[in-house]
C-alpha cells in the first residue's frame, strides 16, 4: 500500500527537476579571445604590383611610375606597402579596429579598415583623410563586414555580401592548403575567388582571386576590372616581404 503512494511521488520528484533543467537558460560560456596578432601594430606587407591597362583605354596613373608598352597594353610596375596601425577608434563602428595604411611608392594613398577575428578576415572599408581638412574623411565604412577569409571554410563553400546601391560581392573557396611559389618563396595557401556582380544585369564587374596564408595574410592577389566584354584592367600583387612588429 505504501509503495502505491510513494511511486508516483518518486516519479514526479525525478521528472520535475529535469524539466526545470531544460527550461532554465543555458549558462553563459565565457570565451577567452586570443589576441589576434595578424594585424598587430607595426606588421607590414610589401607587395610587387603589376598593373596592366588595355591599349585603347585612357588612363592617368596616380603614381609617378613610367609605364611599359606591351602587346597586352601599358604595364606599370610599382611597390605597395601596407602597414598596420593596430586597433584605432572607428567612430561609425563604435569600436577599435585595426587600420592599415597603404603606401604606393612610399606615398600614403589610403587607409583600410580590416579585422581578423574568430579565424576570419573582415573588411570594413577604405577611407582617406581629406587633404584640406584632416578631420574629414572620404571613403566608406560598413558596419556589417565583408568576410574575405574564413579559416574553417571548405572547398566549395560560398558566401556573399550585399547592400543597397552597391554591387553584390560573391565569394567562393577554390582551393585549400595548396602550395604556391611567389617571388622565390613557397606558401601554403587557401585560394578564394571574389566576383563583384551588378545586381541588375548579373554581369561580373570585377573578379578577384587571392591566396591567403595563415599567419601572414594575402600573399597574392589578381584583380580583373572588366571594362568591356574582352578587356580588363589587371592588377596583380605578389608579396615580397612580410615583417612582423618587434615586440
Amino acid at each position: 500500500m505504501k509503495a502505491i503512494f510513494t511511486t508516483p511521488l518518486i516519479l514526479a520528484s525525478l521528472l520535475l527537476p529535469s524539466l526545470a533543467q531544460t527550461a532554465a537558460p543555458e549558462a553563459d560560456t565565457v570565451v577567452e579571445k586570443k589576441a589576434e596578432v595578424l594585424l598587430a601594430k607595426g606588421n607590414s606587407w610589401t607587395y610587387d604590383v603589376t598593373l596592366t591597362i588595355p591599349k585603347d583605354l585612357d588612363f592617368k596613373p596616380e603614381f609617378d611610375v613610367p609605364g611599359e608598352i606591351t602587346p597586352r597594353g601599358m604595364v606599370y610596375k610599382f611597390s605597395e606597402k601596407q602597414v598596420s596601425n593596430g586597433p584605432q577608434p572607428i567612430e561609425s563602428l563604435k569600436a577599435d579596429v585595426p587600420v592599415i595604411d597603404i603606401f604606393i611608392e612610399n606615398k600614403l594613398k589610403k587607409k583600410q579598415v580590416l579585422n581578423y577575428t574568430n579565424d576570419q578576415l573582415h573588411y570594413h572599408g577604405t577611407f582617406m583623410n581629406n587633404a584640406e581638412d584632416p578631420t574629414k574623411k572620404v571613403g566608406f565604412i560598413t558596419i556589417v563586414p565583408i568576410v574575405l577569409y574564413n579559416k574553417v571554410a571548405k572547398i566549395g563553400d560560398k558566401w556573399s555580401w550585399t547592400t543597397e546601391k552597391m554591387p553584390r560581392f560573391e565569394f567562393r573557396v577554390v582551393s585549400k592548403n595548396t602550395k604556391i611559389e611567389i617571388l622565390g618563396k613557397t606558401y601554403i595557401t587557401d585560394k578564394i575567388r571574389m566576383d563583384r556582380i551588378d545586381k541588375t544585369t548579373s554581369n561580373t564587374l570585377v573578379s578577384k582571386e587571392y591566396w591567403f596564408a595563415e599567419g601572414i595574410g594575402i600573399v597574392k592577389e589578381q584583380e580583373k576590372k572588366y571594362i568591356s566584354r574582352d578587356q580588363a584592367i589587371v592588377k596583380t600583387l605578389e608579396l615580397k616581404e612580410f615583417k612582423k612588429a618587434i615586440k
Binding site: R72, R172, S175, S207, E209, Y226, R229, A232
Partner: peptide, 27 residues
C-alpha cells in the same frame, strides 16, 4: 568565360582557361 576572354593571344587564353576551368571545376 569573361576571365578567359580578357586575355590577349591564343597562348595566354589557353593558359587562363587551364587555370580558370581547373578552379571552377574544383568548386
Amino acid at each position: 568565360t569573361q576571365n578567359i576572354q580578357s586575355e590577349r593571344g591564343l597562348d595566354a587564353i589557353l593558359e587562363a582557361s587551364f587555370v580558370s576551368i581547373n578552379d571552377e571545376l574544383a568548386y
